[in-house]
Design a protein around this nucleic acid. Structure first.
Lengths: 226, 226
DNA sequence: GTGTGTTTGTGACTTGGTTACAGACACCAG
DNA sequence: CTGGTGTCTGTAACCAAGTCACAAACACAC
């Protein structure tokens, strides 16, 4: 899982616009202490209760962060894309808490792992890194608040419609199973099936095994307004 | 609302254990730029969409932070007690975003208001302030994740039982209306009334107008386990 | 005691989650 | 091509929770 540095620190830093004017000494320290790791798709990189060992900067690929309830239902909190960091990891490092959710690679992921001690030290000395971390924190928190609002107050038919519109590609195709949609929205598979069937009955989508097609995106988005 | 400084910076800082070894220059800067404000109970200090002007340290009293849906349902996100800060405010300042929720004083509140510019500057220079802010951030985020879990997966009867046990005083009294309980849990008044009536039928609580009494806390807490 | 506003109770209905299966489909091995 | 296997989808019945509409009980001021 851990490969020898495939690139120099200077190289991978160029992937982070926000860090591009990182201080020289910070960069040097990162180069000597941090590791670039490659992780295959579908791997669990941390689970609820784990202690947090190192700060992760995602260079490429996507990490999905989700929670699972006792009875097996799941909800996706957010995704970490290239150039981003996982605030949950940051929070755990800063608060010395264990993780409160689960992180899974959705694709192959290349990331920089900065050991906790180095992260703490650099956070104290590097204005640029600090700004970067604080900024990520702020945007993720805003996302989580929207999520709370949706889960607490939102109607599922509308949340689903929005999700379909948002995630379907140009020809309206969405290659997800009903179960996967349920996890995206924190709902149950049967509920999603029911709702999709209703959309199909109204001619808004067409269902297939393993994927679906949005037919009437205009009508679907009108649904979201009302 | 803004009163002349009732105490010196040295005085109010003593209320924050985490800030007690704040750097001398930081303290001086705070003393000259920040204001101690007193706000009466029941005042809205920010609402969703507002821009954030200054960082707030609560010296005394309680601020409630909650969200309201279009159709009027509300949910309490967290409370800011004496010695704490509002992470939402921090996030807004750091991300230059507007507020995503509403803050209301539950009691009279005395707070230190640090102007945004000063806050940014001190965050860059004061290790102690930085640690304090990061720590608060981490703990609040953990709270919010628990909230998401509860709202998305939790059963209302159990959440309510837990709340009653948690908030009732020594003699089992809880001076809240059903509507207030509904807001605490992000539910609807009728649902709470129904559930409380069921608890009363089972002899677990006794209901009165404007308050209720927990009779069988043991049985109530057994409910939460199962 | 009467009026007024708040709080609580209740029934009917809708939405969403759970349980328990059955059927449909994809794909592999023989 | 055929049967077997695992995954995905459909459905019905039931329960939990939110919504709507309105009635009753209560607290308190006048």
């Amino acid at each position: 899982m851990t490969s020898p540095l495939p690139t120099t620190a200077q190289n991978w830093l160029s992937l982070f616009p926000a860090l591009e004017c990182l201080e020289n000494d910070t960069m040097a320290r990162l180069a000597e202490t941090s590791q670039v790791v490659d992780i295959p798709a579908g791997q669990t990189i941390f689970r609820a209760g784990d202690a947090c060992q190192s700060f992760l900067l995602v260079l490429g690929g996507v990490v999905r962060v989700q929670m699972t309830s006792e009875n097996g239902r799941e909800i996706i909190l957010y995704r970490v894309d290239a150039g981003e960091t996982c605030i949950l990891t940051t929070a755990c490092l800063l608060g010395h808490d264990p993780y409160g959710a689960q992180g899974i690679t959705e694709t192959q992921v290349r990331a920089v792992a900065i050991p906790a001690a180095v992260f703490h030290q650099l956070l104290a000395t590097s204005q640029v890194l600090r700004d970067f971390v604080f900024k990520s924190y702020a945007t993720r928190l805003a996302n989580l608040m929207v999520l709370i609002e949706e889960v607490a107050f939102g109607r599922l038919d509308i949340r689903l419609a929005r999700f379909l519109l948002d995630k379907a590609d140009a020809d309206g195709t969405l290659p997800l199973t009903h179960q996967q949609l349920a996890v995206e929205l924190g709902s149950a598979r049967e509920v999603i099936s029911r709702q999709l069937k209703e959309y199909e009955r109204r001619g808004l989508v067409r269902l297939h095994r393993g994927h679906l097609t949005v037919l009437e995106s205009a009508q679907l988005s009108r649904l979201c307004e009302a």
